[in-house]
Design a protein around this nucleic acid. Structure first.
Length: 609
RNA sequence: GCCACCCUAGCUCAAUCGGCAGAGCGAUCGCUUCGUAAGCGAUAGGUUAUCGGUUCAACUCCGAUGGGUGGCUCCA
């Protein structure tokens, strides 16, 4: 946010500008489409929107905005801004407001909800029934609104406002409600800020992982294979496998046990676990085999649970930590798919820890510690933690209330002990228990859930899990579900954007490219490449007859960390002339010295070259 | 799934009002052998996503299907 530090956004001038711009846009739409019914139009991060109901067209279908409409609306809006009207605030008793807005059904619904003390325009609960409502007026345009607004339309610079796009949006965010026409716009204090914002959008477009994924040969999505089912190309696969080995090693060091489970499972397994009813809508239809039904697995937990149950467990076995890069399949609506970040088949760096109740806190802390280690090694620092709790009004959650309280308390205790900053969000839990999520923000400012840790008292009960305690009695373990990367697909997608394709040396699919200057240097170049390969480096050699400059350019575009230029001098001295992708010509150094230095950086997983 | 928009060579994009489908990059083949971001030339490459319609004539207009993009809903 381009705003001064500690002032809450909704108290800033920018917020008022955007809120007011939304009103002026609604005024413009009302001018051009007199029959429009207004829904809501709040400021949002970087801009504002307003939702409209345009009624039905000649064919009886809901009328929508055409791209030309957007231009007309923007033009009208700019005219209105130049007229410099005053934003007048007033209040109106509820009954008067209902009468005044009688032709505006959405406003009437909002007023009724305010009067009933239910929810405000954004769906947040209100504290008490309203007896009067706020009204803002500019010229003849009157809107239900609690403000705040700028004083006059002059306070909005016409050259710092731009309408961006239209979209459909459900009334009150519920897909069972009618779909409204939303217009998104952006507004800033001045033209320079607007330009900077547009520039930022362009930069984000350039580092979009779908674009870079193609450019760098990382992954491919073929309609013939299926939407949301990415194919990992050799370079993408190397990157992913490097991440996986890194985590595997960290897990081995922490006492995790690898397991492997199949991609489908009997439907009864998911009925027992309770996943089936909760995930019904997001699963592929069951596959009928003989008389039984099988599900493409949407989750790994039940399989791991069956491994736990494969023999009697003792307290001496606990914590019992099973880990697997388990591929799961979930049906996502076609419009929800996006590159690698939202797919239909993905691999979770999954683990299920079966612990004695008294081990819960310590083990939870160890898991969070692992996640932080993974994130910091990779250089992911722009993330936040969120404690997802259940919503007691919802039927999305299973299990006794005290289970939830114990789980939430355990997470809070562990997080506090770690000094972790987190927000609490109701309704963000898994169906079986509360969770602590690590949420990363990408360059487009979209938030993505990556790592997650979940405390689960429910599945141990559903599957009647037990272990024999020191006292010789049967006890019930607690489960921790966790995934530091979350999904390999999403994580790599974010990773591509985070590094703009210029991965740290240890992750780079090609770590060095050998560039012979002329054909006579190819023989020595091959020797260099072989030496690097023997030392465990991922190396390519560019043997083409192009000029060195061209080879360098191509390596730069591929964002290869090291370019090793080989000419007469190097061949003679058994050296390499090192250039990094940061455009630093480091001059010649002995081949062995380069290899030793590069190996050290890789071993340290250094972020710098 | 819903709303809007988009789909032309491997990639990025042209093609006026409906009138013979083009460029750069990449690929291939020559020539060139070069010291830190594009050497020169030639060749190949297309049922304009698919199917249907309107028209003397469709990349262009209309419809359906598929895929994609931005939102909505949902989510690792």
């Amino acid at each position: 946010m381009a705003d001064n530090g500690n002032v809450p956004y909704n108290q800033t001038e920018l917020y008022r500008i955007r809120h007011s711009a939304a009103h002026v846009m609604a005024e413009a739409v009302t001018d051009l489409f007199p029959e429009v019914r207004l829904a809501i139009g709040p400021p949002i991060e970087d801009g504002f929107y307003y939702d409209f109901d345009l009624g039905l067209d000649e064919r009886g279908k809901p009328r929508t905005f055409a791209p030309e409409d957007l231009e007309r609306i923007e033009a009208r809006m700019l005219e209105l801004l130049r007229e410099n009207a005053v934003f007048e605030h007033s209040t109106m008793p509820v009954d008067d407001a209902l009468a005044f807005f009688a032709g505006q059904p959405y406003k009437v619904e909002l007023i009724r909800d305010l009067a009933a003390g239910k929810v405000d325009e954004m769906g947040n609960p209100t504290t008490e029934p309203a007896r009067e409502v706020g009204i803002y007026r500019q010229r003849d345009f009157v809107d239900l609104c609690r403000g705040p607004h700028v004083a006059r339309t002059r306070d909005i610079r016409p050259n710092a406002v731009k309408l961006l796009r239209t979209s459909g949006a459900y009334w009150r965010g519920d897909e069972h409600n009618p779909q409204l026409q939303r217009i998104y716009g952006t507004a800033w204090s001045n033209k320079a800020e607007l330009d900077e914002y547009l520039q930022r959008l362009e930069e984000a477009r350039l580092r979009d992982h779908r674009r870079l994924g193609k450019q760098l040969g990382l992954f491919h999505i073929s309609p013939l294979v299926g939407s949301g089912l990415p194919l990992w190309l050799p370079k993408g696969a190397v990157l992913r496998e490097t991440l996986e080995s890194f985590l595997r090693q960290a897990q081995l060091e922490r006492g995790y046990l690898p397991v492997i489970t199949p991609h489908i499972g009997n439907l009864n397994l998911y009925k027992t676990s309770g996943h089936y009813p909760y995930y019904k809508d997001s699963q592929y239809t069951p596959i009928k085999v003989d008389e039984e039904e099988f599900l493409l697995k949407p989750m790994n937990c039940p399989h791991h649970i069956e491994i736990y149950r494969s023999e009697p467990r003792s307290y001496r076995d606990l914590p019992y930590r099973l880990a697997e890069f388990g591929t799961v399949y979930r049906y996502e609506k076609s419009g929800e798919l996006t590159g690698l970040t939202r797919v239909r088949g993905f691999t979770v760096d999954d683990s299920h820890l079966f612990v004695a109740p008294e081990q819960l806190e310590e083990e939870f802390i160890a898991v969070v510690d692992l996640i932080q280690y993974v994130f910091s090694t990779i250089g992911f620092n722009d993330f936040r933690a969120r404690l997802g709790t259940n919503d007691t009004d919802s039927d999305k959650y299973a299990g006794a209330p005290e289970m939830w309280q114990r789980g939430i308390a355990a997470i809070r205790q562990a997080a506090d002990k770690l000094g972790l900053n987190y927000s609490v969000e109701q309704g963000e839990a898994a169906f079986y228990g509360p969770k602590l999520d690590f949420i990363f923000r990408d360059v487009l400012k979209r938030e993505w859930q990556l790592g997650t840790v979940q405390v689960d008292f429910l599945l141990p009960e559903r599957f009647d899990l037990e272990y024999t305690g020191e006292d010789g009695q049967k006890h019930r373990p607690v489960m921790i579900h966790r995934a530091p990367f979350g999904s390999m697909e999403r994580f790599v997608g974010i990773l591509i954007e985070h590094f703009n394709g210029a991965f740290p040396l240890w992750l780079a699919p090609v770590q060095a490219v050998v560039i012979p200057i002329a054909d006579r240097h190819v023989a020595y170049g091959r020797e260099v490449a072989a030496a690097l390969r023997a030392a465990g480096l991922r190396v390519e050699i560019d043997e083409g007859s192009e000029r060195m400059n061209k080879k360098i350019r191509e390596a730069q575009l591929q964002k290869i960390p090291y370019m090793l230029v080989i000419g007469d001098k190097e061949a003679e001295a058994r050296a390499v002339a090192v250039r990094t992708r940061d455009e630093q010509d480091r001059g010649a150094q002995p081949l062995d010295a380069f290899i030793a230095a590069a190996r050290a950086l890789i071993a340290a997983r250094a972020l710098e070259l």
